[in-house]
Amino acid sequence: MMTETAADLAPRIDLAVTAVAGVRESYSARPVVARAYERMAEVEGSLAAVDETAGARAVTVCIGVSTDDDSAAVASAVAEAVRQAGANAPTDTVRVRVARLVAPRS
């Protein structure tokens, strides 16, 4: 049973994602319309997209990974961090999108 709302969970997921070794950048995984509304209303939204439907949660996060890192391993670690942050019910799904490979600083 979910006792925590998506609005409560999303900021905690954002923090968990950025704490994972290998995550160089984090991007919004939320719909463009939601981001545009927040911009107009001058409110800060979370980067994680947390959708709840019929007792199930779908969490999507979007990250940038260094070209020096194993993107699959980083994505797997991010998925585990998201589950530990609260998306761990049997009906929850977690998607990690690697949106960008970031060149290492020289």
Rank of each mutant, 00 (worst) to 15 (best):
M2R: 14
T3E: 09
T3Q: 04
E4L: 11
E4R: 10
A6G: 12
A10N: 02
P11D: 06
P11I: 01
I13K: 05
L15Y: 00
A21W: 06
A21V: 12
V23P: 00
R24P: 02
E25Y: 08
Y27I: 04
S28F: 05
V32E: 09
V33E: 13
R39S: 10
M40L: 15
E42T: 10
E44F: 00
S46A: 15
A48Q: 04
A48P: 01
V50Y: 02
D51P: 00
D51V: 15
A54P: 03
R57Y: 07
V59D: 06
C62D: 13
I63R: 00
V65C: 11
V65E: 08
V65L: 10
T67F: 09
T67H: 10
D68L: 14
D68A: 15
D69T: 07
D70P: 09
A72R: 12
A72C: 10
A73E: 14
A73S: 14
A75H: 08
V78W: 01
A85F: 02
G86T: 05
G86R: 04
A87Y: 05
A87V: 09
N88K: 06
A89R: 15
D92H: 06
T93N: 11
V94R: 06
V94T: 13
V96S: 08
V96R: 08
R105K: 12
